[in-house]
Simulated scan of single mutants.
Amino acid sequence: MTIAASARFEFRLRPEAKSRIEQAAELVHESTSDFARTAAEERADRVLQAHSAATVVPGAFFDDLLRALDEPTMPNSALREAARRSRGIVERR
């Protein structure tokens, strides 16, 4: 099911930008409206995807994480047990 476009979006641009958009739209056999709308939608999708892929954490958290990664490892009992069990599972060739 296709939903008809009904929302309106207007903006102003420099005459040379309008001319480039018209020229590009003509090259791909699209109306300037379709060309501009598609370009804006694609850019919005890229920006939203990039933003959702980023994880923002407080600086102190990041500093603590890096400090913890730099510290020597200290195996606990669960890790020692897992390593012991793996010796019987993993084959050496």
Score class of each variant (00 low, 15 high):
T2G: 08
T2D: 04
T2C: 02
T2N: 05
I3M: 13
A4V: 07
A4M: 12
A7T: 09
A7H: 15
A7P: 01
F9P: 00
R12I: 04
R12H: 10
R12S: 13
L13N: 01
P15L: 08
P15Q: 06
E16V: 03
E16L: 10
A17M: 05
K18T: 05
S19T: 12
S19E: 10
R20G: 04
R20H: 11
I21V: 11
A24L: 15
A24H: 04
A25K: 02
A25I: 03
E26P: 01
E26Q: 15
E26H: 14
L27Y: 01
V28G: 01
V28Y: 01
H29N: 13
S31W: 00
S31C: 02
T32S: 15
T32C: 04
T32I: 03
S33C: 08
S33K: 06
S33G: 10
S33T: 14
D34C: 13
F35K: 11
R37P: 00
R37W: 05
R37Q: 13
T38I: 04
A40F: 06
E42Q: 14
D45A: 15
D45K: 12
V47N: 03
L48T: 12
L48N: 07
A50W: 07
A50M: 07
A50Q: 15
A50L: 10
H51T: 09
A53N: 14
A54G: 04
A54V: 06
V56I: 06
P58V: 05
F61H: 10
D63A: 15
D63C: 06
D64Q: 10
L65D: 02
L66K: 13
L66A: 10
R67V: 03
R67T: 09
L69N: 11
L69F: 05
D70C: 09
P72C: 02
P72H: 01
M74W: 08
M74C: 11
M74S: 10
N76Y: 00
S77H: 12
L79T: 09
L79I: 02
L79S: 12
A82T: 09
A82V: 05
A83W: 07
R84F: 11
R85T: 05
R85N: 07
S86T: 06
E91P: 02
R93A: 15
R93G: 13
